[in-house]
């Protein structure tokens, strides 16, 4: 299922955050949103999932215009902040969110065991989240996002604060989700992660300055460093 954005605009007050964006994310790909902080990555993600209404323009998943309850069931979302219930255990958080997707109890319990193992939290499942470290919270948040086996996964900086070993494991997971047909849209600061993706969308001041396959993006830089594309953008902006 493709995700099509058509002339999407969003401003907070008078400050435009997303300026007339149109592009299509092909189903089954991993697309990363890249950009400096404040470039509108998080806003764009939230517009796509329907957490924010766009000022104008449309967002379609396949033929369905968002927001839509049926599509919502097939979405997984991992917000940038952890968004966990601190007074519940890891298991309690998973049980609650899983329950909202009305999975049968036994299937849910089996799935919870499975995702806890994926994010390496099996031994901490009974611990209250308020006693978790930052990295553990991040992993639990990811576990919640993938709990109901979504077809489309939105991840807002999923690996920030996670150590390199676990980060590699998580990306292996993402690749295996992709192999199963999941579309993944991931925002990131970490330029190393770009090579794991199929497409890269470069956001700068709410505008899409580049959208292409990752190998072609790397070609354009000449140096093999994606950052250079942003430097070029900021220089061209400085020259009126």
């Amino acid at each position: 299922m493709d995700i099509q954005l058509d002339h999407v605009k969003k401003s907070f007050g008078t400050a435009p955050v997303i300026q007339d964006l149109s592009f299509t994310i092909a189903g089954g790909e991993i697309c990363c949103l890249l950009g400096p902080s404040g470039s509108g990555k998080t806003t764009l993600l939230r517009l796509m999932i329907g957490a924010l209404p766009a000022d104008s323009g449309t967002i379609r998943f396949g033929d369905t215009e968002m927001p839509d309850m049926a599509i919502l069931k097939r979405l997984g979302f991992m917000p940038q902040n952890d968004a966990l219930y601190e007074d519940l255990s890891a298991y309690g958080n998973l049980k609650f969110f899983g329950g909202l997707y009305s999975l049968p109890k036994q299937a849910l319990d089996a799935r919870i065991t499975e995702v806890l193992a994926m994010v390496d939290l099996t031994n901490h499942s009974k611990k209250l989240v308020k006693n978790f470290s930052g990295g553990m919270k991040k992993r639990l948040s990811l576990a919640i996002a993938i709990l109901h086996k979504p077809d489309i996964l939105f991840l807002d900086e999923p690996t920030a604060g996670i150590d390199p070993v676990l980060r590699r494991k998580i990306w292996e997971q993402f690749q295996s989700f992709k192999a199963q047909g999941t579309t993944i849209i991931v925002s990131t600061h970490v330029m190393d992660e770009v090579v794991e993706c199929d497409k890269g969308a470069l956001l700068y001041n709410g505008q899409l300055i580049e959208y292409d396959t990752v190998p072609r993006l790397l070609d354009k830089t000449g140096s093999g460093r994606i950052e250079d594309l942003f430097f070029a953008a900021s220089e061209s902006e400085a020259r009126p």
Partner: peptide, 8 residues
Amino acid sequence: ERLMMTPI
């Protein structure tokens, strides 16, 4: 926000 992204 996360809750509202589920079918509740």
